[in-house]
Design a protein around this nucleic acid. Sequence first.
DNA 1: TACTATACGGAGGCACCCTCCGTTTGTCAA
DNA 2: TTGACAAACGGAGGGTGCCTCCGTATAGTA
Lengths: 196, 196
Amino acid sequence: MNAAGTSTETLLARPQRADARRNYEKVLAAAREAFAEGGESTSLEEIARRAGVGIGTLYRHFPNRQALLEAVYVNEVEGICRSAAEFDGGDPWESLNGWLERLMAYIGTKQALAAELQHYLDKDAALFQDCRASLFAAGEPLLGRAQDAGVVRPDVDLSEVMHMVIGIAKIPATDPSQTEHILRIALDGLRYRADT
Amino acid sequence: MNAAGTSTETLLARPQRADARRNYEKVLAAAREAFAEGGESTSLEEIARRAGVGIGTLYRHFPNRQALLEAVYVNEVEGICRSAAEFDGGDPWESLNGWLERLMAYIGTKQALAAELQHYLDKDAALFQDCRASLFAAGEPLLGRAQDAGVVRPDVDLSEVMHMVIGIAKIPATDPSQTEHILRIALDGLRYRADT
DNA sequence: TACTATACGGAGGCACCCTCCGTTTGTCAA
DNA sequence: TTGACAAACGGAGGGTGCCTCCGTATAGTA
């Protein structure tokens, strides 16, 4: 997540003292684990308990629930960005499609991550900017290549594409194959067509 | 919305005594007003206060927050269904498009309504079934006509189309014109195309 | 009017978010 | 190694919100 030049370390500046740094990591790990298992609604008290720290300690490191969620999901976003590299060769349409499908599958089960991402795309806090920059650095080449090849309509930008995909990913999935079908339909709308 | 499992009339049956019926309406009106003004997060205590009833009274009529939200939004859904009638003539593609655009504009500012709708589309509680049936009765002719005319791909159903549109409507709108552009792209994916 | 089923209302239980502040501990200079 | 202190800890408790319980009030009826 260092597309903007400033390192993540600066933005997330760790606490100084050794025990503080240790506790920071423990809380983050417990949160990641708890959100994965029990859903994003796990209480902060529960997370503090899992981490073996007091609730006060949790709150010194993460001033509120939102901050903790964001810290957890910065990693996830990094994963999404990295996965773009796997699609940098081959057919432009298939590459873009592949990444977006991966993106959706990745998000699918994590409603909270999806909600965060939607905010990243517009909000302007420093951490958001950084995530946004990374996502764009990852996705823009794929989209640009597809547009240059003339297989994707030229009047869309990555922000729109990602909003669309994330919006679909957030559909409460009773049947994952249906959600995937909806994505295919929407992505079909991206294709360049000479007529009309 | 209990599992008593009887008819819809029973489920929507108003309280018997005059004061009860009066209070039911007062709470519903206060809730509608409060959700419209202050966002869907208004507390139930606040709504009871506005309605001039005790919190206990509110809870007898609406067993939980969700039930109150749903009761408020049944009206809104009816409005959406009615608007389908305006599009029953003319070009099939434009008709479907028009209704879906109307649907999205209608939902746009009401995130809570959108969330409810997404559930209506799948859940199977009696009231949901009812809303779902109304929405389908309204939208299915429009979609069917467009498919029969060969302008919409035959492998989509109304459930998918509505999930897609609502998913896009839920995108946090920093710029409404962008959201509308995204909708146009996605709807473009619905068009029938002979090639590939 | 008197009686009863129905409905009212708000105190209070519970869970959660977050703050405050007395206590503990890592760090570093002497 | 030790002493001093800034830094960090931790949990009691304040505030709020959802919802329940039950004593009180009242509409409807004979």
